[in-house]
Simulated assay, not measured.
Amino acid sequence: METTKRKLRVTGTAVFDGDLAQKGYALNKMCFSFNDAANRQAFAADEAGYCQRYGLNAEQYAAVRERNVLGLLAAGGNVYYLAKFAGILGLDVQDLGALQTGMSKEAFKQMLLEAGK
């Protein structure tokens, strides 16, 4: 039996595949570090130095600086790790989903409720 692999493309979103995972390794590693309160404080005290310590590339650093969540996703960020960074900004995973889909947070939440029925 032959199997084929289909890629689902969602307009306006980056597909998190192996290439994007490699591209985003440093960014995701940095975001994972935010599990520790001391690291969140270190980031707040010196964002540039903290990003440099993790080896973020120019695209990733610009997206961090600009608080551009969609840019972070395009730069290899995984939504589950980016949730740690979003928490620093006062955002939650539903905020990230709303940003990805171009919806308001309330519309995104309603869509989730309807999909769960």
Rank of each mutant, 00 (worst) to 15 (best):
N68S: 11
D36T: 12
D36K: 15
N39R: 14
A21M: 00
A62D: 12
Q52G: 09
R65D: 12
Y50W: 12
E66F: 07
D46E: 09
A38C: 01
A38I: 06
A26W: 04
C31W: 06
R65M: 09
G49P: 08
E47L: 10
A63M: 01
R53D: 13
G49L: 06
N57F: 06
E66N: 15
C31M: 03
F32N: 13
Y50A: 11
Q60V: 04
A48R: 08
G24S: 04
A42Q: 13
Q41H: 13
Q22H: 05
E47R: 11
A63Q: 05
K23H: 01
R40W: 03
N28E: 02
A48H: 10
Q52R: 14
C51D: 03
A58L: 05
F34S: 03
D17G: 13
N28W: 03
A44V: 03
G55Q: 07
A63G: 05
R67L: 06
N57M: 05
R40P: 00
V64C: 05
A37K: 09
K23I: 06
D46F: 04
V64L: 04
M30Y: 09
G49T: 08
A62Q: 14
Q22R: 12
D19K: 15
V64N: 00
C31L: 03
A44N: 10
A45F: 08
F32S: 12
Q60C: 06
F34W: 00
G24C: 05
Q22N: 12
C51I: 07
E66W: 02
A58D: 15
L27S: 01
Y61S: 13
A42Y: 02
Q52F: 09
D19C: 00
R65P: 05
K23C: 01
A21L: 00
A45P: 07
Q60W: 00
Q22K: 13
C31A: 12
G49M: 09
R40D: 01
L56D: 02
R67W: 03
N68Y: 06
L56Y: 09
E66H: 14
N57P: 08
C31Q: 01
G18E: 01
A48Q: 11
A62C: 07
A58N: 11
D46Y: 11
D19W: 08
G18Q: 04
F32K: 15
L20A: 13
V64P: 00
A58V: 11
R67G: 05
D36A: 14
N35Q: 11
Y61R: 07
Y54I: 14
R67P: 10
R40V: 10
N68A: 08
F43W: 14
G24W: 02
R65N: 14
C51T: 09
F43C: 04
G49N: 07
A37H: 00
N57A: 07
Q60D: 02
V64R: 02
Q60G: 03
S33E: 03
D36H: 10
M30T: 05
G55F: 12
A58C: 02
Y54A: 10
C51F: 02
Q60F: 05
D17H: 05
N39E: 15
K23Q: 13
S33T: 11
